[in-house]
Design a protein around this nucleic acid. Structure first.
Lengths: 235, 235, 235, 235
DNA sequence: CATGAATGAGGGTTCATTCAT
DNA sequence: CATGAATGAACCCTCATTCAT
């Protein structure tokens, strides 16, 4: 068949695939909201299908278990966060500044997207492993920083544990209520001190003004946040 | 009536109260094990009554909800941990050494008592607030240390968040598998570095040999751990 | 598309709705029988699902509570009774004769349908309010009769209370055992005497031969009665 | 044993029997209140023992089933009502006046004792048979009245059914809310009309002022009513 | 594929009753 | 006899999952 052929057999599957994709995204959005509300261990399927306005039966055409759904939300979020943050930090030369900035973006994202914070806090330790996507860049940055003498020769696996824990508690705090605007910077500065940086140095690398990261309009982050807000306003 | 004659009204209620107390402890032990296995959000009552070999109905003579039970386990554990650790650190004069030693004991306890680690990890963020009993002493130690110039003038609330997060992740790691014997010391040293201590100083205050803390034979810690081991061996 | 082609979207929902309706009726039938046996305050759901040969879970797709179910049975019965009786009395000109005949039909229906009597007796005072549907026409008849001088100027609200109570006790008696064929007439005559009618007059208006009211074959009355009889024969 | 002997063996059993009797009455009081609140079909034992401040186990030393308890309350109430009403009507010569006055006292008692009304209404048809104690005198009065020509030659069993039903509905109405002071008289007048009395005659026999019947201070009626009121005021 | 009713397993809870003390 | 803990049956209800249409 020539590439230019536009038979119905070409058209129908495509629109079907698009419909399928839209439905999947609707389910994931709803799931993120429900997980954030009820916790990742809860029975969410009924609420998710209600929120997504899909039939019970259809759900199983897309996901097989609760955990499937959680994994889908989680990996989609990871990907979107990386896509937002990576371009903003990838070309920073100084590894210390790069690590600090990446973590600042991460926490500020959670701070500005309350739903994201609530979802991540709800996931807790359980998501830390899957969220490792987000921490993908940190180990390399820390090693490079250490090799370049920006950090003291401390054990980096330990620092990574502390950083993960600090992020988790920080996100939980932000999920629960408002925090000061520079709360993320203070947390990150503390983490950087575990690397042996001086207080002045930590202040310096957490000082630069960040860009405002705004999720694409059709992203999970944007859509779910919008729906959650509408819901809060209504209910 | 001679003074030595115990009236039945003195004896009967006492043995009844003792029986009741034993039953309650059996349930709490079982609950700790089941929570550690299935998570604190799960529906544990059926498994708890099975493990305790009690009838479903009996359970409700002691606890009304899952959360009641969790709170009971949690507060009993808190109390026992404090009772173990506090005598061993209470009379340390140097606040930095005191804080470091307290945290070391806390993590080593979790390291030596795998069940405890699994329970605390299962509780995650949700238990951090209730476990605050354990962190009761830390804020005061940090403030005293800061006033005495042992720590840099960093924001202590931030350090507390980082410490909590670090402990949480450390406990989770210990719950999942074996770690090096000095893993707790390395975590604590990292936390102390957030207070501006030098690396040498952090090594010094995490160096002293600790006593071996051993839970009383009739404590929740000892009994549950014993039962969990027996269970592992059997099943 | 030709006009005769029924789209699947026309057919599928219809048969689904029909199946749903059949299921609902099965449950209501079973409920009427069980309520009549065990009383309207009892826990009937397990027996109803057993009698209807449905799963427990299915029940909750149709009714949420015991009271829901009772209300459904009750209102369906009310509607069916009105549908049977109203055509037979609606066009009687004399309000006294109309009231008397309506009440006679009501009691005779209960007399010929033992299950109905048992259900109504089980409901007792609790159903009187909901059964008010059945007594919908009585107040108007009485007022009209009073205005036309057929009845003495007695307080009608009082007469209505007495009529309701008399009907209740009569139904209870018929539910418990056989009564004479003219028992309803005697009860109604007594009620009419509270309106100041003479004995001769009450005999006159309760004398006409009534049609035989027979519930439609697919009505709740007919189906439940048939099932109850089959059950009695079997058990 | 001479009548003057006062051995301990004479004293101990007596106080024991008195204690037993007091406890029994406490349980019956509580039961009357709980039945009135929750209905006679409900599970009342837990609430009754709580209200009576007795242990669960003790309950079974006094009553074996729910129905036992209900029968006890019912028969005690019957006896007390008869004891109150009978002396006030027993020596009325005219059987019509006697029947009317007896029924008036009955309804006025329920009107002034809200708890009594609520209990009787809760019992509904189920209590009518046991309450027949109360209706013990009515059949004889009616027959005597009929023989003496005070009533028309109507079937008295029918009148008794109507009277019972009227009383039931009247009591239910009084249990639910306030009614006019002469509501009982109007109901009774209507019942008397079923006996063929003229309106003027029914008014005459329901006109006499009644004594105020007041239950003895240690009666079930008085004590339960007092406790129910205290409860209402408190809760 | 979408739908939504049907299912049955499982969890939560109450309650009548028994029994050791 | 009083007590109150223990029991197990029974009830209420939710939910994941399947399947006919």
């Amino acid at each position: 068949m020539p590439a230019t052929a536009k038979s119905p057999l070409d058209h129908r599957p495509r629109v079907a695939a698009e419909r399928r994709e839209r439905m999947r995204r609707r389910l994931i959005e709803s799931a993120m909201i429900v997980f954030a509300e009820k916790g990742v261990g809860a029975s969410v399927i009924p609420e998710v299908v209600a929120a997504a306005e899909v039939s019970q039966g259809s759900f199983y055409n897309y996901f097989r278990t609760n955990d499937d759904l959680l994994a889908a939300v989680s990996s989609e979020l990871s990907a979107e966060m990386i896509e937002l943050i990576e371009p903003a930090v990838g070309d920073i030369a100084d590894p210390a500044l790069r690590a600090a900035t990446g973590m600042r973006y991460y926490l500020h994202l959670a701070r500005s997207q309350r739903l994201l914070a609530r979802f991540l806090a709800a996931g807790g330790l359980r998501l830390l492993s899957q969220q490792s996507e987000v921490f993908r860049y940190l180990p390399a940055d820390l090693e490079e920083g250490q090799q370049k003498g920006r950090f003291a020769p401390v054990p980096l696996d330990i620092v990574l544990d502390v950083a993960a824990g600090a992020a988790l508690v920080a996100i939980d705090r932000m999920a629960r209520g408002r925090v000061a605007k520079d709360y993320p910077e203070k947390i990150i500065a503390a983490v950087l001190r575990t690397l042996g940086m001086t207080i002045e140095e930590t202040e310096r690398v957490t000082a630069p003004v960040l860009r405002k990261l705004v999720p694409a309009a059709d992203s999970l982050l944007a859509r779910a946040q919008a729906r959650a807000k509408a819901q809060d306003a209504a209910g």
